[in-house]
């Protein structure tokens, strides 16, 4: 079983603060982490390797400093890690990003071998689109299973996998042939502590650098210029002001609150 996990390095969103003067985000001093959903994708791939044998490859597109994320992936049990880094990718939207990652995946397949399961997080906590995984699956022409919460059954000989995925107000169990693409929820698994052997291996395994010259990436499909969506402007939402304290007897308070929220309840069709 060969898994290929797509991971994104992101700023720790919980530590990003807003500068209301300039309307921008303050990212200085904010640590870069592996997108939390992606750590569960790595964990799931490593658990499958531990059970059925094989290997786990990891591919990250980002600036040179993203090799740190890949080193962490090695420490979690990945075997081969690739950093796709090139100025031509700058400003890519999800259509262009999924193209670049698809092209990067072709290179990984060429070097390591065919992939059984492609993995991505359900979404990144910075861009937040949840579009990259579906985009890559479409380009790979493999079945897509989003919002995975449980790997129910893996059958390497029949090349089939059963996944439980989240629906609104429920779940469904899906069976697909491999290769396939799975995007992960945080509840898919618990991240285990890395055994020492992984850490030792991680220190010895190099990050393989991929760019437009050592892959067959077509630069005319990447970057800001070749992305159909453009950011017209970015701005911070207004700061939350301290609101109003409602006082009185219990009945008075609740009637007052009701009056305050009645327009909203009407808008929601509750009244």
């Amino acid at each position: 079983m060969h898994s290929l996990v797509f991971i994104k390095q992101v700023p720790d969103a919980a530590q990003v603060r807003v500068d209301y003067e300039t309307g921008t985000l303050i990212r200085e001093g904010v640590p870069a982490i592996i997108n939390p959903f992606d750590t569960h994708a790595i964990e799931a791939a490593v658990q499958i390797k531990d059970k059925f044998g094989g290997s786990v490859s990891v591919l990250c597109m980002g600036p040179p400093m993203a090799d740190e994320a890949l080193k962490k992936a090695l420490a979690m049990g990945a075997d081969n890690v690739f950093l796709l880094s090139d100025r031509v990718f700058a400003g890519s939207d999800t259509l262009a990003t999924s193209y670049a990652l698809w092209a990067g995946a072709q290179k990984v397949i060429q070097e390591i071998g065919p992939v059984d399961i492609f993995w991505a997080g359900k979404q990144a906590i910075d861009g937040d689109t949840a579009q990259t995984g579906p985009g890559i699956a479409t380009r790979l022409d493999v079945p897509l299973v989003t919002y995975a919460v449980e790997v129910k059954e893996v059958d390497p000989s029949a090349k089939k996998i059963k996944i439980v995925r989240l629906l609104e107000g429920g779940t469904e169990t899906i069976e697909v042939p491999m290769p396939c693409m799975i995007t992960t929820e945080e509840t898919l698994n618990h991240i285990r502590f890395a055994p020492l052997s992984y850490l030792i291996k991680a220190a010895k395994t190099p990050v393989v650098l991929l760019n437009s010259s050592n892959t067959t990436i077509d630069a005319s499909q990447c970057g800001l210029k070749n992305s159909p969506t453009k950011v017209k402007k970015a701005f911070t939402p207004p700061k939350r002001e301290r609101g109003e304290m409602i006082e009185g007897s219990l009945d008075e308070i609740i009637s007052a609150v009701y009056e305050k929220i009645e327009p909203m309840l009407k808008q929601l069709g509750r009244v």
């Binding site: 939207d93 999800t94 259509l95 999924s98 937040d128 689109t129 949840a130 579009q131 990259t132 995984g133 579906p134 985009g135 699956a137 479409t138 380009r139 897509l144 989003t146 919002y147 989240l166 629906l167 609104e168 992305s227 159909p228 969506t229």
Partner: peptide, 23 residues
């Protein structure tokens, strides 16, 4: 932008090479 909608939109847009703004 429901579970179904977000599963569907990304793959439709990619097939069409269309831009897709999320959520």
């Amino acid at each position: 932008a429901t579970t179904l909608g977000r599963d569907l939109a990304g793959t439709v847009a990619t097939k069409l090479s269309a831009g897709l703004t999320a959520d």
